[in-house]
Simulated scan of single mutants.
Amino acid sequence: MATVLGSVRAFFAQSAFTTDEENPGDVVARERLLDRAMGEGRFRKSSEKLRRGRVPAEGLALVARDPDGHVIGTVRLWNVEAGVDASGNGVPALLLGPLAVDPDHEGKGIGAALMRAAITEAARRHHGAVLLVGDAPYYERFGFFADKAQHLVMPGPFERHRFLAMELKEGWLDGAVGVLVPAGRRLGRGVVRKAA
């Protein structure tokens, strides 16, 4: 019986993780995790055009850590303008991505926990909408749907059915039309130039 309990405790200890705000010391571990989980193709995505030369939205770069403090998951949100409204003004929004979990830790709810933390923090910071490119069956459970992004386009090749949006404030994207463009803070000196 003691062996079974020890095995159960070991399983739960291995699957434990916490979510936290990314800090400068996480950058190398985060890049290695993204390389492992997504490969070099991640730099050719349309989303990269919106992230290049920018830093994530304030307080919206999150990581998951194992009990030893190692980065095992990551998500970042970026300031963008989601086309324009009827008056021709840019519609402020966030672009989520990439969301990645270390392959050795998949299936433990880490991605879902990062998604919930990111959405909660974005709402707490009074953002109006979040957009992403991803698999609808996964992201619909968090409230992301293609119809909310139907009049918007990415700045390069993308699959329409994978372009999803979630309104944090009802009606935020009503009337928004056009191409997403980058917004927010630009990279400065002393900031790592490789943004993924």
Score class of each variant (00 low, 15 high):
133 V>Y: 01
139 Y>T: 04
163 F>Q: 02
105 H>I: 05
49 K>G: 04
174 D>T: 07
22 E>V: 05
42 R>G: 02
174 D>S: 15
116 R>C: 10
177 V>M: 12
150 Q>F: 15
53 G>A: 13
48 E>T: 04
75 V>W: 05
3 T>W: 13
24 P>G: 13
155 P>N: 14
169 K>D: 09
145 F>Q: 06
105 H>L: 09
76 R>D: 13
158 F>C: 01
36 R>A: 06
72 I>M: 06
103 P>V: 08
86 A>W: 15
154 M>G: 12
74 T>M: 01
15 S>E: 13
130 V>R: 00
114 L>N: 08
85 D>K: 10
111 G>V: 02
87 S>V: 14
25 G>C: 10
33 L>G: 01
106 E>R: 13
7 S>M: 15
29 A>F: 04
78 W>M: 04
73 G>L: 04
134 G>K: 01
69 G>S: 13
78 W>T: 00
130 V>N: 07
165 A>L: 00
185 R>H: 12
41 G>K: 03
69 G>I: 07
24 P>F: 10
39 G>N: 02
97 G>W: 02
134 G>Y: 01
190 G>H: 13
115 M>S: 00
19 T>S: 10
48 E>I: 13
132 L>N: 11
56 P>N: 12
154 M>I: 06
115 M>K: 01
4 V>S: 14
51 R>Y: 01
117 A>G: 02
71 V>G: 03
96 L>R: 08
139 Y>M: 06
113 A>K: 00
152 L>P: 01
37 A>G: 09
183 A>S: 09
7 S>H: 11
172 W>V: 12
181 V>L: 07
175 G>V: 06
83 G>D: 00
32 R>K: 04
9 R>P: 03
66 D>C: 08
165 A>S: 06
128 G>L: 02
96 L>C: 05
109 G>L: 00
23 N>P: 14
73 G>A: 08
26 D>H: 00
132 L>R: 05
38 M>R: 12
32 R>E: 13
10 A>L: 14
113 A>P: 03
138 Y>K: 04
95 L>Q: 08
19 T>C: 11
66 D>Q: 08
120 T>P: 07
25 G>Y: 12
113 A>Y: 02
31 E>I: 07
23 N>S: 14
9 R>Q: 15
48 E>R: 11
84 V>I: 05
8 V>Y: 14
121 E>A: 14
43 F>L: 07
107 G>S: 09
133 V>H: 07
183 A>C: 14
65 R>P: 10
119 I>D: 03
122 A>D: 03
98 P>G: 12
68 D>F: 15
42 R>A: 14
25 G>H: 11
47 S>D: 05
12 F>I: 13
135 D>M: 08
95 L>K: 03
116 R>E: 10
54 R>A: 00
174 D>M: 14
193 R>C: 10
186 R>T: 11
24 P>L: 08
33 L>H: 06
102 D>I: 12
187 L>A: 12
170 E>G: 14
111 G>L: 09
145 F>L: 07
128 G>K: 00
178 G>P: 06
66 D>A: 13
114 L>A: 07
25 G>W: 11
117 A>V: 11
101 V>C: 06
161 H>A: 11
181 V>F: 10
193 R>H: 12
180 L>T: 03
94 L>P: 09
63 V>N: 06
24 P>K: 02
113 A>M: 06
173 L>I: 13
100 A>W: 03
118 A>F: 10
175 G>C: 07
32 R>G: 05
40 E>F: 12
33 L>S: 01
120 T>H: 15
62 L>F: 09
39 G>S: 05
